[in-house]
Structures are given as structure tokens and as C-alpha cells.
Design a protein around this nucleic acid. Structure first.
Ligand SMILES: [Mn+2]
Ligand SMILES: [Mn+2]
Ligand SMILES: [Zn+2]
Ligand SMILES: [Zn+2]
Lengths: 140, 140
DNA sequence: ACAGTAAACGCAAATTTGTTGCGTTTATAT
DNA sequence: ATATAAACGCAACAAATTTGCGTTTACTGT
């Protein structure tokens, strides 16, 4: 199944409307290997694409129903990726390259469990960011 | 030793000038149990406090010499806390309450080690945020 | 197929958070 | 005491995201 058809399926299952714009956003996220910002998504939209505001609102809606997760690396840019785990919660750590800024989902890596780091503190979700140098930016 | 005198010591040791403004910022951070944003710091400054630009520049200088660390919880607000470890790198996870938004340094909790999560990815620093409910926001 | 309705959209303006430029003041070393 | 670079204040700027509001469109049920 191509990513456009799969996008429709994802939206339907989430109870969202299948507008051409939202289908394309989901499909772009499906085809991307790493989390994307609004600007990166807008740049990949076909001609006569969507307004920025519309992209923001779509991503917010996707987050609410849990089909994407939001990656917050501290550069004040929000990036979004489709969830394999079907929840808006993070189920893997993320790698951030200090050289090229690229962000990557470390889907194969387990998160350690912090159930109650201090008495009375209930942990519901965990985010772990590993910052360093990616293979492409490493000295050859 | 009161926090004002201790602040002077910290600034001197870091090679920064001991201006009344910077002494007060360090002292506010010393007295705080949790990381503070520019706005929170400005609010605690004595009358005829500092310009907000000055506070930002002081925090940036503190970060550069490693006397504070910056906490980035994804709400687009940077918060700063004094380092026990004497480095700008994170040496403990942080807790974020989804109810009251309060951020806390979990100084007692060890960070797990991810040396090379994927082949070729060199990790230099790690940030871990635990999100959930703090004791004060938990149902009684 | 058709009408009603709430969701999605586009555009303009606003908001939030942090940055830059530049002239003035001040802490500190000599 | 003086020189000098660091620190400061103010105004303007900048980037990312949000809000308001009127219009369009996808779906639901005839
Ligand atoms: Mn991810
Ligand atoms: Mn901390
Ligand atoms: Zn890189
Ligand atoms: Zn709380």
C-alpha cells in the first residue's frame, strides 16, 4: 500500500477528516525517516500547499489523537513524527546532532524505567535526548 | 555564609565580574529549589531591578562558564539552575509536573548511560525529562 | 443525489520568548 | 587615579507559534 492510502487509513482510524491537506501531511511524515518541523513539512507539500497555520493546527490535532509524537530538542522548534506505538507518548529516546541539528528517533533503543524518582512523584512519561555527533558529521 | 556572599564567591571563581545585578541573580538561583526562567528571576529582583536583556545576557554568560545548566522542557521557556557538578552538562534528570508546570532537578537520581545507541552515533550529553504529577498536585 | 453541520482552512494580526545594536556606566587591574 | 573591557539599559528586531474570524468543505443522515 502506498503512503497516501495508508495515510487515509490512519486518519480514518483516528476519527479525523480525510482532507487532501491532512492526507498529504500524514503521508509526508510516513515517508520521512526523522521528525519534521512545520517548515520542513510545508516545504514538502505539493504546489498550492497549505497555509502555515493549517499545518500547525493539523499537527496539533494529530498530537491530540495520538497519531504523532512531538520532539522538543531545546532549539525552540517542534518536530513531529508518526508513532509506531500508537500513542502520543514517547516510546524511544531521540538523538540530536550538535553539528547538523538533525534529530532522529532511536526506535530500537529501550527507555530505562523511572517509576518514582522521589517519593510522591508519579511518572507518566519520559523523554530522553542524546546529544552528540551523528555518523555523517563525524571526522572521516 | 549567606547566599549573597556565596554568590560573590561563585562569580569570582568563574572569572566573572561581581556586579550587584549578577550577584543578585546568582543568589536568587541559590535560594531557589527549582530551575527559574528569566521572567521568574526578574520578578524576584529587588526594586529598580535589571532589564530583561541584562538577565538574559547574565544567564548566557553563566551557562558559558558552566555555573548553571539550562533546562528545556518543551514549553519554549528556558529555565536555569545552579550546577552542583560544576559543568553546564546535565548530571541528573528533571521532573516536570503536567498539572502545575513546575520543574525540579532530581539531583539524587542517576542518569543511565547510552554510549553508542546506534553504530557511529557518539553521545556527548544526555537530557532526561520525567513528566507526570508532583506530590502537591496529586489527589489527596 | 442533497442539505445541514461541524471540522478544516486561509489570511491578517497578535503573542511569546529571546536576540541585536549601540551608546553609557561601572568593576577591576595597573 | 586611570584605563579598559565587561556589564548595562533602551529600542528595535526576529522567529515560532497562536488567535480571531469569515469562508469552504468533508461527512452524516435523509
Ligand atoms: Mn521519535
Ligand atoms: Mn537540574
Ligand atoms: Zn550531524
Ligand atoms: Zn505539580
Amino acid at each position: 500500500m502506498n503512503s497516501l492510502n495508508y495515510a487515509v487509513k490512519i486518519l480514518k482510524k483516528a476519527g479525523l477528516r480525510c482532507t487532501p491537506g491532512r492526507i498529504e501531511i500524514v503521508s509526508i511524515l510516513l515517508d520521512s525517516e526523522h521528525p519534521l518541523s512545520q517548515e520542513e513539512i510545508t516545504a514538502e507539500l505539493s504546489r498550492n500547499g497549505l497555509d502555515r497555520v493549517t499545518v500547525y493546527r493539523a499537527l496539533e490535532a494529530f498530537l491530540k489523537v495520538g497519531i504523532v509524537h512531538r520532539v522538543e530538542t531545546g532549539d525552540r522548534l517542534w518536530r513531529y513524527a508518526l508513532c509506531a506505538c500508537g500513542s502520543r507518548k514517547h516510546c524511544h529516546p531521540h538523538f540530536v546532532c550538535r553539528e547538523c541539528g538533525r534529530v532522529e528517533c532511536l526506535t530500537g533503543v529501550k527507555l530505562p524505567t523511572f517509576t518514582e524518582p522521589k517519593p510522591g512523584y508519579k511518572v507518566e512519561e519520559q523523554e530522553t535526548y542524546l546529544k552528540g555527533i551523528c555518523p555523517e558529521c563525524a571526522e572521516p
